[in-house]
Write a protein that binds this DNA or RNA. Structure first.
Lengths: 158, 158
DNA sequence: GCTTAATATATCGTATACGATATAATCGTA
DNA sequence: TACGATTATATCGTATACGATATATTAAGC
């Protein structure tokens, strides 16, 4: 009955809301840099993975890195294909597997995007200390989080 | 030409991806707790604000707290209205303003949701130290971030 | 070799996000 | 007090997210 019973329900006490709003604010910051390239932020992330892999990846492999499944990736990859940045073809060894590879335009886009990270960092206007602290806190959080299938980021609890 | 020029484009170097994936993972954790209540995670956030305000709020006031605009809020609030948790009516003083208030069912839902925060925290499985560190890091980040209109969350640097 | 289980994507339905624009009501001011 | 500017929502179009299910292909067991 007392208001204090609902103390935990206050927005400012929610770690989740901080994450949720910070993620959206940062994503919005990317817009002016990615829009001229003709890609969205999630598409940019998918391209980061492909650029780094240097080889065709299956939808599942992309999904493992991005923590997304085919229900999200398939439509996005189709858009990237229509835009001319990737190609999709079935694996010869396993027809179930859809292999996603970069086109010439997809590789060329990498050069156009080369400065995006530093532009974004500049636009953020956050000091190195705070940014580094946040990265560390997020890694520790993801490492401890249950069902935080953050790949190899898991760590034993001390 | 050298691979090193693209070092910054590696996914693991992206602060933004950590934020993006951590936010999604936490949101997914809410699902089993909010689904029985018949609400989604963004709807839960909107209700948190209304429960805390204790009075009808305009779409704009809700949006300030949630960092969302009418293009997102209007459809969501209509769903909450159809679900019977809120009422929407125009302000008598200013017909432009849509006032959102809780129904009895909306207030009752607060009791059902009272344990959600601790259930979620339990489900997270993250130590207090790590959680507190992340909250601190996110607040410092949001405080410094340019156009980080984090409301009253800004804080002077020590 | 045939049938069933498992796997990899794809599809579908619903619910956000959000830029751009439209609409309606109020305000400011000549 | 008309009327253009401002303000508060709403609408529209596009692009994710994601649970649930469908489809197609391969693997496994008998």
């Amino acid at each position: 009955m007392a208001e204090t019973s609902y103390e935990a329900l206050k927005l400012d006490h929610q770690l989740c809301f901080r994450l949720y709003s910070a993620a959206r604010r940062v994503t919005r910051l990317y817009h002016p840099f990615l829009d001229p390239l003709g890609i969205t932020y999630p598409q940019y992330l998918a391209l980061l993975v492909l650029w780094e892999a240097q080889e065709p990846l299956s939808v599942g492999e992309l999904g493992q890195r991005l923590e997304l499944e085919s229900n999200t990736l398939t439509p996005m990859l189709k858009k990237l294909e229509v835009a001319g940045f990737v190609e999709r073809r079935r694996s010869a060894q396993d027809e179930r597997v859809q292999l996603v590879s970069l086109t010439d335009a997809g590789w060329a886009l990498r050069e156009s995007a080369a400065h995006v990270p530093e532009c974004l960092y500049e636009a953020l206007g956050v000091s190195d200390e705070v940014a580094i602290a946040l990265v560390g806190a997020l890694d520790a959080f993801s490492g401890e989080m249950r069902s935080g299938n953050a790949g190899d980021a898991r760590q034993e609890r001390a």
